[in-house]
Design a protein around this nucleic acid. Structure first.
Lengths: 153, 153
DNA sequence: AGGAAACAGTACTGTTCTGGTCCAATTATG
DNA sequence: CATAATTGGACCAGAACAGTACTGTTTCCT
């Protein structure tokens, strides 16, 4: 469905909420604050800590803190942290493309991947939290989407 | 992994190949021509026919034909035909977002979805077929994206 | 120093989805 | 009219993912 994993969604939610607190925050608190189940939010935070998106403080009175301000964290970074690298096909990294010889389009997918990565890198977590998007859309490169009139069923 | 299904990859390959033929083509022929397993390519074509990307002719001497020229078919259309709608999260269509009330970012994903759709709509199947990859990111219509100076990790 | 709180890592289970296969409906041809 | 060729739709197996639970390590508080 070209949808990212639910974990990534949770990650964004948790990160945005975490960005609104200036102190270290624990998983249970964040869970209560976001509505995400505690084990899940814990898992997400763990992964994010591994990837350096958040910093962790162990022990009692520990918790998590944003490693960078919301404005500095792109959606692409979060997606890559949770879901892994952004590459739409397996052809790219010299993968298991069995039809490479005959497929005719030698690695043109890289172009598509790059386009998506660019689009995703242009949006930060700060853009995700509630402020009106209207003003940003002008200067931002987001949705002039021409929306072709075909096969949308 | 934010990767699209292998079926979509196959679909693009089959469509590009189909665009190079001006006559109706059967699944076996297309399979032989692309290297994609016959049942798989058949299934892909079937779906594409349902979505109006290709037109089908049943019965003997039947086959498939492109409904539009390659230049008119965007990658987004193919992805939507095979993988379903391009919406990264389930939040969008009033789905099963259980944490909608608390998540804080009310449907900001639409912005991301739009960005991706836009990037994907800008690339057509004609762009996917064999022209030199060297200028793929330069002269092509891929990244008007101004690329913020941050968090591309 | 001892106990409690919180993160870190690993392993497991259930569910969803993709990928592939098989049978039925349809149409041109002889 | 019968036959063969081809698409159309439904079905089944396999893998990947989400979610959960458990154990271990670290740190603060009493």
């Amino acid at each position: 469905m070209l949808k990212l994993s639910k974990l990534t969604d949770y990650a964004v939610v948790a990160l945005v909420r975490l960005g609104q607190k200036s102190e270290v925050t624990t998983s249970p608190v964040l869970s209560r604050s976001t509505g995400i189940p505690e084990p899940t939010v814990a898992k997400v935070l763990k992964i994010l800590a591994t990837q350096g998106i958040v910093t962790s403080q162990r022990g009692a009175r520990g918790g998590y803190r944003l490693a960078q301000p919301l404005e500095e964290i792109s959606i692409a970074a979060v997606i890559q942290a949770i879901d892994g690298p952004i590459s739409l096909t397996t052809c790219v990294d010299g993968g298991d493309c069995d039809a490479r010889a005959t497929c005719g389009l030698g690695g043109q997918w890289d172009m598509v991947n790059a386009a998506i990565r660019h689009a995703l890198s242009a949006i930060t977590l700060a853009d995700m939290k509630n402020h009106t998007v209207t003003d940003r859309l002008g200067g931002l490169h987001v949705p002039p989407v021409p929306d072709r009139p075909e096969a949308t069923a």
